[in-house]
Simulated scan of single mutants.
Amino acid sequence: MQNLKLQEEIKSLKGLGQHFKDQLKLASIELGDFSDEDLALLDKCVQYYAFSQIYDSNLNFLRDYYYGKKRDCLENKRTKVQQHLELQRIKSAIEMAAKDVAVLERFKAAAKERLIPDTVALQRRSHQVATKQGLLDRQKTLKIPKDFNIESVIEKVDSLERR
């Protein structure tokens, strides 16, 4: 049973080989006309045909394959151009961000120069609090009569200034 299948497969492969030879003769091509590299490619093609169980050599398949490869090539070129444009956009965005970082670094340096250390700020604050407390204490010790009118004093000063 197994032997019968092998014999049928051998017979069909011989028939296929004869078919391909006939196809080559129709195109006026002899196997001796091919270089070793071309024969290696043909051998690989035959292996692919045998592997894929395709036995009909049709030029339309080759044209479809060619146009498919050509389409892939054009799509790859288009994708490459799009990616190049995207890369340029990203590079310009990086340059803008670098400029912004430089401006922020200059601002940070200027702010550090103007920054007052914590110890100095605490000393100033304690001095201001002490001055305020001193003024409040002086105000408490100052005895202002209840009938004192500041507006009349201001009017008298203004009249003296006018003279």
Rank of each mutant, 00 (worst) to 15 (best):
M1K: 05
M1G: 11
M1E: 08
Q2R: 10
Q2Y: 08
N3G: 05
K5W: 05
Q7H: 05
E8A: 12
E9I: 05
E9R: 07
K11R: 12
K11F: 10
K11I: 15
S12T: 13
S12C: 03
K14S: 14
K14T: 15
G17S: 13
H19C: 07
K21L: 13
K21Q: 15
K21H: 12
Q23Y: 12
Q23S: 13
K25G: 09
A27R: 15
S28I: 06
S28P: 00
E30G: 10
L31D: 06
G32E: 05
D33F: 06
L39R: 03
L39E: 01
K44G: 09
C45D: 13
Q47F: 02
Y49V: 13
S52K: 11
D56W: 05
S57W: 10
S57E: 01
N58H: 07
N58A: 11
L59W: 06
N60D: 15
F61I: 11
R63A: 09
R63I: 13
Y65Q: 10
Y66M: 15
Y66V: 13
G68K: 02
K69E: 14
K70R: 14
R71G: 05
R71T: 14
C73H: 15
C73A: 11
L74H: 06
N76A: 15
R78E: 13
T79Q: 05
T79F: 00
V81C: 03
Q83K: 12
H84M: 11
L85E: 14
L85H: 07
L85P: 02
E86L: 04
E86R: 02
L87Q: 09
L87W: 04
K91P: 00
K91I: 08
S92V: 04
S92G: 03
I94V: 09
E95R: 04
E95V: 03
E95A: 05
M96W: 01
A97P: 00
A98F: 00
A98H: 02
K99G: 07
A102H: 01
L104G: 03
L104R: 03
A109I: 08
A109Y: 00
A110Q: 11
A110D: 14
A111F: 07
E113S: 15
E113H: 08
L115G: 08
L115R: 14
L115W: 01
I116M: 15
D118A: 12
T119W: 04
T119A: 12
L122R: 12
R125L: 10
Q128Y: 13
Q128T: 10
Q128E: 11
V129W: 00
V129I: 14
A130L: 09
T131R: 07
G134H: 04
L135F: 01
L135G: 04
L135K: 14
L136N: 04
D137L: 06
R138T: 12
K140C: 15
K140E: 13
T141N: 02
L142C: 11
K143N: 10
P145Q: 04
K146R: 14
D147H: 09
D147R: 06
D147M: 03
I150H: 01
E151P: 00
I154M: 07
I154W: 03
I154G: 02
V157P: 00
S159Q: 06
L160N: 06
R162L: 13
R163M: 11
